[in-house]
């Protein structure tokens, strides 16, 4: 990390706010998201309604950029099949 990057930008303050807005008492962690993301991806691809469990996947993907990156890569593979 370089010194000149040490101040927060509007976008980063916005990220904190977004994180707080999405925070709930019970959330999936990354391992739980990984366990269910394949089901979520297939539902999204088929435009099928998502159940209660995979709503938690959607919430985690909104909060976690790493899991979102992996989900988007998974969708890229599924769409190529």
């Amino acid at each position: 990390m370089k010194k000149k990057e040490q101040r927060l930008t509007s976008e980063q303050v916005g990220s904190i706010v977004k994180m707080l807005g999405l925070t709930t008492d019970r959330e999936f962690n990354c391992a739980e998201c990984l366990q269910h993301v394949s089901e979520f991806a297939e539902c999204q691809l088929a435009n099928k309604p998502v159940g209660e469990v995979i709503v938690s996947v959607e919430q985690h993907l909104a909060l976690c950029p790493e899991c979102r990156e992996e989900y988007e890569a998974l969708m890229k593979i599924l769409k190529s099949e």
Binding site: L34, S38, A41, E42, E66, E69, E70, L74
Partner: peptide, 16 residues
């Protein structure tokens, strides 16, 4: 889900 979708999600996690 399909087994291959589940396995591919794990593979992406490993790679990323």
């Amino acid at each position: 889900s399909k087994f291959t979708t589940w396995a591919q999600a794990i593979a992406l996690n490993v790679a990323f």
